[in-house]
Simulated scan of single mutants.
Amino acid sequence: MALDAHDPRQHWLGRTAVVSASGALDLLTSPRLEQLLNATLQERPAGLIVDLTEVNFLSSAGMQVLVNIHAAATPDIGFVVVADGRSTSRPLALVGLTEVFDVVPTLQAAVELIS
């Protein structure tokens, strides 16, 4: 499978992993994100930030990935989602996921929350 601009990316801030997605996070693209997130958890980060800043469509499949990864993360791994705006934070709030895990509007806020 060729990489394109919509493939999720990972980088590290110390022992905190940041996984970023872009474009549409739907039935076709969410498996790639879930695969990278699961691989990231295998590296035993102290914290995991899922950055949806560049996501312009978040489907139920994308939200299910977040639920799955949150459930797979051990209690000692901080888990935060960065989402701001109608495309991401609004759907997460509407289905009640903001009550399940932390959702913040910026990467900086996520880093501060995990620290």
Rank of each mutant, 00 (worst) to 15 (best):
A2R: 11
L3V: 11
D4G: 09
A5S: 12
D7L: 09
D7E: 05
D7I: 04
P8G: 09
H11Q: 07
W12R: 01
W12Y: 08
W12C: 03
L13K: 00
L13Q: 05
L13F: 02
G14I: 04
G14H: 01
G14F: 03
G14K: 01
T16Y: 03
V19A: 05
V19Y: 03
S20R: 10
A21L: 06
G23V: 06
G23Q: 05
G23I: 10
A24N: 07
A24F: 08
D26M: 05
D26Y: 10
L27N: 06
L28C: 07
L28F: 10
S30G: 08
P31Q: 11
P31C: 09
R32G: 12
L33N: 04
L33I: 07
L33F: 03
L33K: 05
Q35P: 00
L36R: 12
L37K: 06
L37D: 07
L37Y: 08
N38Y: 06
A39Q: 14
L41W: 06
L41D: 10
L41A: 04
L41C: 09
Q42S: 12
E43G: 08
E43C: 09
R44D: 05
P45N: 06
A46R: 06
L48E: 02
I49Q: 03
I49W: 04
V50R: 00
V50H: 04
D51H: 04
L52W: 04
L52G: 01
T53H: 10
V55W: 02
V55H: 05
F57S: 03
F57K: 00
A61Y: 02
A61F: 03
G62D: 00
G62I: 02
Q64N: 04
Q64R: 12
V65Y: 01
I69D: 01
H70I: 02
H70R: 08
A71Y: 01
A72F: 00
A72E: 09
A72P: 02
A72N: 06
T74R: 11
T74F: 01
D76N: 11
I77T: 08
I77C: 11
I77N: 06
I77D: 02
I77K: 04
G78C: 11
F79P: 00
V82G: 09
D84V: 10
G85P: 06
G85N: 12
R86K: 13
R86V: 13
T88V: 13
R90C: 10
R90Q: 15
R90S: 13
R90W: 15
P91A: 12
P91F: 13
L92M: 13
L92Q: 13
L92R: 14
A93L: 15
A93Y: 15
L94V: 15
L94I: 15
L94M: 15
V95P: 08
V95C: 15
V95T: 15
L97S: 13
T98Q: 15
E99Y: 12
V100P: 14
F101S: 14
D102C: 12
V104P: 14
L107P: 10
L107D: 11
Q108H: 13
Q108L: 12
Q108K: 15
Q108R: 14
A110C: 08
A110W: 11
A110S: 14
V111Y: 11
V111E: 13
V111T: 14
L113T: 06
L113D: 07
